[in-house]
Design a protein around this nucleic acid. Structure first.
Lengths: 210, 210
DNA sequence: GTCTATAAAAGGATAGAC
DNA sequence: GTCTATCCTTTTATAGAC
């Protein structure tokens, strides 16, 4: 068993605190305290607080985009013109599989992504990185082929809808209405999301018709 | 023409800056500077920065919840057992009508709501207030009647989906993929949302079946 | 690589004059 | 109601010893 080095300990602590309190709500001091490291370690290993956030975001997002690429590859091998359900599954599936809600780390990473997406700072855009943009472009093209009646702006609207639903899921944006209605666990929530989003994406275009 | 008093000027400036930079990203100094008011005005009129945020949130949210209640009332008068499309329209419609994207103020208030929902702070929960919770409960019951096959947790999942899609709409959560694919304007975006969400809410339950 | 110490700035809040 | 002046805390970043 290898003990984590300081760099990794700081990264772990930052992931947790950024997820819980957001970027601006987390101080470098709180991170290094939790990590059992020195305040100066952040500057040494990551240059600055922003550099640390970028590193945290990269570590969380990379496995997801990798899985999304792989799933889309599989789908396209099976069928050059895949259906909506397959595309939705290839895009959304990895978000659940890589961040299972029943796992503490998964829920934490999910909250972190929400914190990144919800951050109004311009900087936050760059945290998501180019991986994420590339994946989105690929899926956008695939959906455009599967939904020929849909104009680009409406397709883009729907794509954001997918991102919104999956990002908000498992994040308590409000108090739960009743205690038993908390977020679904693992596979259940994934199935709900796939049902919800496949139906939504399959809706006929309404771009200009009344 | 009545000139706005200091209280209103501060409220306006705060609404704008909170929307653009979030609660934590906005200093009281920046607000009073933009308002052309004195730093101490915030303490005098609102008690504290948090009190100011609560006042801003109330002013934005109240007209929306009022409209949602009214629209649901209308729907229930016409039909004691309304369909999914009517319920979705009654819930989502006011979010677009009260915050038109083509209007600068509408887009700003939309971003503000996103900033509130996305804020990880516990405090942020209370900003949305009880109005919003009451509306959600009413619609939850109405949807439950219209979707008898849907268990409570899955219904709650879908309700959050509606909130997610409408909140994220018109907010650039990422860089736009191509310049022409920006957010849809006004009525168009509303129609896209109603189409997308009505289809999603109408999907058959998948809670436990395979 | 890790630490102490400190710089330098920005933040929220408030006392008290007017 | 509005203003000035100031207090006190917290923040990021860095210089320099070890």
């Amino acid at each position: 068993m290898v003990l984590p080095d300081t760099r990794t300990k700081v990264l772990d602590a930052a992931e947790r605190l950024f997820a819980e309190n957001g970027y601006r709500g987390t101080s470098v001091r709180a991170i290094t305290n939790l990590a059992g490291a020195n305040l100066a370690a952040v500057a040494y290993h990551f240059g600055s607080k922003a550099g640390l956030m970028a590193a945290v975001a990269r570590r969380v997002i990379e496995p997801i985009t990798t899985a999304q690429h792989a799933r889309l590859d599989e789908v396209l091998v099976r069928d050059a013109d895949p259906g909506i359900a397959d595309l939705v599954e290839a895009f959304v599936g990895p978000l659940y599989d890589e961040m299972p809600a029943h796992d503490a780390g998964g829920a934490r990473r999910s909250r972190l992504i929400m914190a990144i997406l919800g951050d109004p700072a311009e900087e936050a855009r760059s945290w998501a990185g180019q991986d994420e943009a590339a994946v989105r472009e690929r899926f956008l093209s695939a959906f455009a082929r599967a939904l020929p009646g849909l104009a680009a702006p409406e397709l883009w609207f729907r794509m954001r809808g997918i991102l919104a639903v999956t990002a908000v899921d498992r994040v308590e944006v409000h108090h739960r209405p009743t205690p038993n209605c908390s977020a679904g666990a693992g596979e259940e929530a994934k199935r709900w999301a796939l049902t919800f989003l496949t139906a939504a994406m399959s809706a006929p275009a309404r771009g200009t018709v009344r």
